[in-house]
Computed example of a mutant assay.
Amino acid sequence: MMKGTAAVHVSIDYGDEADFVKKYAMANYLHLMLSFLTSNTPMYEGKPNADVFLRDSIWEHTDSRRSGYMPKALDADFGFAAYANWVEQMPLVVMNDGVRITDAGQRTCMQVAETYGWDETVIAHYLSMVFPFVRLKRFIEIRSADCMPLAWTLSYCALIKGLFYDKDNVAFYSGKASACTIDTLHAYKRCIERDQWDANVYGDTLAGALGVLLERAARGLDAKERAYLTRFERLVAERRHIFEESGENDG
């Protein structure tokens, strides 16, 4: 999975647990839209690639327990404890104690912690040994985007800022997330794989939902920052992907 994929990970802040829960649910809810919008893999292993969610497919089929959606991400009682319990039950694979890396075998994080404890350094390692679409550390790490040229990466960062640093947008999309389920998101993925831009998802077509996403993100940015969104606005208007933009993958 490390060899076959590359990504743009963007990290965002949260103020307290309640803010974390809203933004974490929102990021999971928006994952498919962010992944589709940044899809940039026309070829894979020397052959044309038809999987618009190729990164997701590789990660989820490598180790489905620790990848994909955190199972309780959209639950009403989700919070720090639920995330911690999920990590604690995960086989750790390897342990890095700051001096050496050792094989953890099939021992869970909780079992390994009986030896190594819970200091700040080892907790950071425990948290790094799960690979969900959205990961919790001291920040929220959004792992949805494909690898992109620098200009597109800047546009994506502006998109994330406009969405997650605007209180109205957080309230809007976290509210949508609270009425959604992980099973619904899996169904959305299958629909998008089949119907692409015309997929009936998020209460709209995918193209329509992406248009709303960009409009709302623009409201959370100043005039200079909004200019970065024009690249994605053009993609949605033309129903194209980054790799279909002439010369855009040259840097």
Rank of each mutant, 00 (worst) to 15 (best):
M129G: 00
E215G: 15
V170E: 08
R65S: 07
E114K: 05
I58M: 02
A227D: 13
C109L: 06
T181G: 03
P132L: 05
M2E: 08
F36T: 14
D13W: 04
F172G: 02
S246V: 02
K3H: 13
H125N: 07
N40I: 03
H241T: 11
D222I: 01
G203P: 05
D16T: 00
D103W: 03
A151H: 15
L34W: 15
N85F: 05
D222C: 15
Q89R: 13
K23P: 02
Y188C: 04
C180G: 06
S39C: 01
A171L: 07
R239A: 01
E215N: 15
G251D: 09
M2H: 15
L235P: 06
K3Q: 05
A158Q: 03
Y173N: 00
T108D: 09
N200S: 06
Y29S: 06
C157M: 07
R194W: 11
A104K: 02
F131M: 13
A124I: 04
D75V: 13
V212R: 07
V130S: 02
E248T: 12
S128Q: 04
A179R: 14
R65C: 06
G98T: 12
A151Q: 09
M148Q: 14
Y24E: 06
R143T: 14
T62V: 05
E193I: 03
V94M: 05
Q106W: 12
L159N: 14
G220A: 09
E233L: 08
C180K: 05
L150C: 10
L185Y: 10
G208Q: 12
C147T: 10
K224I: 11
T108I: 09
T181M: 00
K72F: 02
V99T: 14
T121I: 01
F78S: 07
W118E: 11
R55L: 06
G203F: 00
A177M: 06
H125C: 01
E114S: 13
V201K: 08
Y116V: 11
E245W: 10
D103Q: 03
F172R: 09
D198R: 09
